[in-house]
Design a protein around this nucleic acid. Structure first.
Lengths: 213, 213
DNA sequence: ACCTGAACACCGTTCAAGT
DNA sequence: ACCTGAACACCGTTCAAGT
């Protein structure tokens, strides 16, 4: 930190002349709108109005609309990673931990479908301009990779190439999640709960070293 | 067919006063645009211009833009189903046939990423207004279900609830496909080819009755 | 029946101007 | 430094009017 002039960072009270942290408020408002109305329902005019601010005010904090969405996506990967780690710890690791991670993953997507879609849509384009998004996504993936590495070390999971094994597991839960939020499981009377349970069991069967499930 | 008046169905030559089958031309043009520029690049003005027709001409054949997209999605499920059945037959059924189906599935998505996204995006909303879309998607799913039923009958696949088993397999290939086209496999030096191979093998391990893979 | 062109109500983004 | 309001170039959709 370079010692600056006499000016301390101003902490303006909320509701006063604009915001103390408009950037933060914009992200929160965008996330709220996305969760409620979907990403298509997100307009710069809308977030501006909701915050009592001009529709062009956000250009002081984000290069464009896509950058705002990328920031929302970043938050999503962070929340997801924490949920995964929490599930893993709560079940004290092992295959029960991996199952819990899988269920937590799909539940996050079902609870926040629009947010989840935003995390994966336009990922490449957004990632090129927002390295922190890629970093945050990588951290979430790392949580899964670490779990599998531990299972392999304990001789529970097959000693396959770890990144490939992790991407396979990711594919299953991502596939279930996407099918669920896109309405492709509408014929399941239980709204996909049975499939999630089946899927995590079959993941275990697919990567275990044990002879029988 | 009710015998009509003296008027035979006019077969206008292309390039002449509009089209003999504008509906067909609109779908083809929309598909081409989607494949080339993505679904966001699809504008009614664009397809109209490309066909030498007003931008509102399509309202004679489709209720709105979403209905046009739904028609494109329908074509996609049809093409996908044919590709799956072809792969299944070419490998003479069995697990080799199932593996080939899985690879054909992912390859379709990678070859036509925007088309594939359109097939699953807004599926519910589109399906409510376009029952044929749901029917075509169901037919594609049925191809997979039939394959698994045969494997179960032969004692090769576990006798689990067939729709659940089919949705699980679908989730894996859908997950791989979505991750691939959304750029989440960019760190794979082989662009995901190894993952696809690994995934179809692990699917087999997950649903087989055999003790060892 | 089928298509057009003007009009309408929206967008994201730019930019000169305010404080 | 930060924000505004008018303006610009786009959208999808509607509708009276043409043929």
């Amino acid at each position: 930190m370079v010692s600056s002039t006499a000016e301390k960072p101003k902490k303006k009270r909320a509701g006063q002349y604009h915001h103390g942290d408009l950037r933060r408020a914009l992200i929160d408002q965008a996330l709220q709108t996305i969760d409620r109305e979907g990403a298509e329902g997100l307009t710069l005019r809308g977030v501006g109005d909701a915050l009592g601010v001009s529709r062009t005010a956000l250009y002081r904090h984000f290069s464009d609309k896509q950058a705002l969405i990328a920031a929302v996506a970043r938050e999503g990967f962070r929340t997801l990673r924490i949920a995964l780690l929490d599930a893993w710890e709560r079940q004290a690791h092992g295959f029960p931990g991996l199952e819990a991670m899988g269920e937590a993953y799909v539940q996050f997507a079902i609870a926040h479908p629009s947010h989840y879609r935003v995390m994966f849509g336009r990922f490449v384009e957004s990632g090129l301009r927002d390295p922190e998004l890629i970093q945050e996504a990588g951290a979430a993936f790392q949580a899964l990779l670490d779990a599998l590495l531990e299972l392999q070390r304990e001789g529970l999971a097959r000693p396959d190439d770890p990144p490939t094994q992790a991407r396979f597991v990711w594919s299953v839960v991502h596939g279930v999640a996407m099918l669920a939020i896109d309405g492709q499981l509408r014929e399941c009377h239980d709204n996909g709960a049975g499939l999630i349970e089946y899927a995590v069991r079959r993941i275990q069967a697919a990567i275990t070293t044990a002879v029988r499930m």
